[in-house]
């Protein structure tokens, strides 16, 4: 079975990748200037105090030794304890992951909706002024980074026309009946649409900021592909059957243009997840990205390691999902 073989070989390369990522992160955050001990002790602490604290966290050993100890623990499911919060890294990180996942997926959905709509519209109106307008919009979407979109959105929907929430994940005054961290998902399942509305109102701007550059890429690429496909023989044949231009784009061209776009969307989606780090900070959204920045500022070495590994796992799973979707959508591969 193709899918099974693909999945297994992917899991193997994923493991190798993760070990590589672990080594690099581990070494880099120990080599760069600044150390956690200096953040924990008051100025003027004695050398003996510093040494004692270093020994407590195992930072007096060589980097190789530290890595082996840490890696051995990781194999047992122990990612260490956060230096700043003194809580297990694994539970800290897993607590924040759902928030970031919900935000990223929301952003992806928005990007696909905007991107595909613009691509179809641009193809339908090809050769007219409206297409040039869409091209300009794509150009702007592509050249402005996500955090700048965030600032612009805050100005627009937070200050000038304050309809959305600027800060946080959910209004603090609300009672949350949730048992998991997947707030948005759970609010829908529990039919608490008042909470869904509040969550969406918080999520909308950061999600849109993350989505706009990706939407522009999808729109640009898909339009290009659609414009080629609508001139292929089978599209012409469909027109002679009596189908309208819109129908030809939707049912003949779109299914064949989606595939080449999909691969790129997968790659770009990992960039989007990377973008959550700054955008979450901007909107004080309590996700992994926001936590990552805190961890770096505090030199919370175990936490940084945990977050980076989790991001790496996330990226490889996104790529795997894209490959599997590709195999599923392409009839030639499905039957191979």
């Amino acid at each position: 079975m193709l899918l099974l073989r693909l999945t297994l070989s992917r899991l193997l390369t994923t493991l190798i990748t993760l070990v590589g990522v672990a080594v690099i992160v581990f070494v880099v955050i120990r080599v760069v200037p600044g150390n956690p001990i200096a953040m924990m002790l008051p100025p003027g602490a004695s050398a003996a105090d510093i040494d004692r604290l270093k020994a407590l966290y195992g930072l007096d050993k060589s980097i190789a030794e530290q890595f082996l100890i840490w890696f051995g623990n990781v194999l047992h499911g122990d990612f260490g304890t956060s230096i700043t919060t003194r809580q297990p890294v694994l539970s800290l990180v897993l607590d924040r992951l759902p928030a970031t996942l919900e935000l990223s997926i929301m952003a992806l959905v928005i990007a696909v909706i905007i991107g595909v709509t613009l691509a179809i519209l641009g193809t339908r109106l090809r050769g007219r002024k409206a297409e040039a307008g869409i091209d300009v919009a794509n150009g702007i979407g592509l050249s402005v980074p996500d955090f700048l979109w965030g600032l612009a959105l805050i100005l627009l929907f937070g200050v000038i026309w304050p309809v959305f929430q600027i800060s946080g994940r959910v209004s603090p005054r609300l009672e949350l009946p949730f048992t998991s961290q997947f707030y948005l998902f759970e609010s829908i399942v529990r039919l608490r649409f008042d909470l869904t509305a509040d969550l969406l109102s918080h999520m909308f701007m950061p999600a849109l900021a993350l989505a706009l550059p990706l939407a522009a890429i999808i729109s640009q690429l898909l339009k290009q592909s659609l414009k080629e496909t609508v001139n292929l023989d089978y599209s012409v044949l469909a027109r002679t059957k009596g189908y309208s231009e819109t129908r030809v784009i939707l049912s003949e061209a779109l299914p064949n243009s989606i595939l080449p776009t999909l691969t790129l969307v997968g790659v770009q989606f990992t960039f989007l997840i990377g973008g959550t780090i700054i955008v979450e900070r901007l909107f004080s959204y309590e996700g992994l990205g926001n936590m990552a920045i805190d961890a770096v500022i505090n030199r919370d070495l175990p936490l940084i390691q945990g977050i980076v590994i989790l991001f790496a796992i996330l990226f490889t799973f996104v790529n795997l999902a894209v490959d599997m979707t590709y195999a599923f959508l392409n009839p030639k591969l499905r039957h191979a």
Partner: peptide, 16 residues
């Protein structure tokens, strides 16, 4: 009316 196209390899939609 109907068309019998030139190239059968490109005149059928590959994903349908």
């Amino acid at each position: 009316a109907a068309l019998i196209p030139q190239d059968p390899l490109t005149a059928l939609n590959p994903s349908r």
